[in-house]
């Protein structure tokens, strides 16, 4: 799996996580609320994002590779012009549904912008900081506990899966690309129990060292200037939305 976090020390990286989470949410809400025929607005949203990438020093190629996660949605968008009903228009000699083309464009544009916003947030904020950000946004402590343990246990599961694979190879298993899927599937219950028992030991060790469910946090309040600076992209997006809706 490619890492989604890109460590750095730019103004975007330094912004408090909660500011970035709120900005990302507002920005995407503006994108979704935009009428699908306002093509200029989508271009402006993209320009705002490109500005953030410049400040955060994220290369477009780095983003493009990770944005491929969106591919299944794009396939749907490309199919829409051909499967939807209604009046048709000719494009390069092929009759395509007018409504379907617009619907496909709608999903493609909004989905792509949404993916790019999430990627920008993830690239500039480490998973730990995202959790601290949610904590500062008053997300219930229990949710934070589960989320923290989940991020920790992802590594545990991956490590146990590797160990089980090594053990299978030691016993004469010959893992090829697709054939190891069967063995992995049969061992999925064992993987779960092994991961749990290892996780339980780690958890008890953490509890005995004083962990009470919350991440250690800097108690200093966030200044107004950080909020003002961080909310600039959201404010621009809101202005664009208001501008095209009038």
């Amino acid at each position: 799996m490619q890492p989604f976090h890109r460590p750095g020390d730019t103004p975007v990286h330094r912004l408090p996580a909660q500011v970035k989470i709120v900005t990302a949410l507002v920005f995407v809400l503006c994108v979704v609320a935009t009428r699908r025929t306002e093509f200029l607005a989508f271009g402006l949203y993209f320009a705002v994002l490109a500005g953030v990438w410049t400040v955060a020093r994220i290369p477009p190629v780095w983003l493009a590779k990770r944005a491929l996660i969106e591919t299944p949605f794009v396939i749907l968008a490309l199919a829409l012009p051909f499967v939807a009903g209604g009046p048709t228009v000719d494009v390069l000699g092929v009759a395509v549904s007018e409504q379907g083309t617009l619907a496909g464009w709608n999903i493609l544009a909004k989905g792509t912008l949404g993916v790019l916003v999430s990627l920008t947030l993830a690239a500039t904020t480490s998973p730990r900081d995202l959790i601290v950000g949610l904590q500062r946004l008053r997300v219930p402590a229990m949710v934070i506990t589960i989320a923290t343990l989940m991020l920790r246990y992802l590594e545990v599961i991956a490590a146990e899966a590797r160990r089980m694979r090594t053990a299978r190879i030691c016993r004469g298993h010959d893992p090829r690309f697709l054939w190891q899927v069967g063995a992995t599937a049969r061992g999925i219950g064992t993987l779960f129990v092994r991961s749990y028992e290892r996780g339980e030991r780690v958890h008890l060790a953490m509890v005995s060292r004083g962990w009470a469910g919350a991440m250690p946090d800097d108690p200093r309040p966030v200044g107004r200037s950080a909020w003002l600076l961080g909310l600039v992209p959201a404010a621009v997006a809101a202005a664009v939305l208001v501008g095209v809706s009038l």
């Binding site: 589960i146 992802l154 991961s195």
Partner: peptide
Amino acid sequence: LDDRTAPMAGLVAAF
């Protein structure tokens, strides 16, 4: 949610 079920919840989520 107690000391025994918290890691279980975390593991179920991770799984």
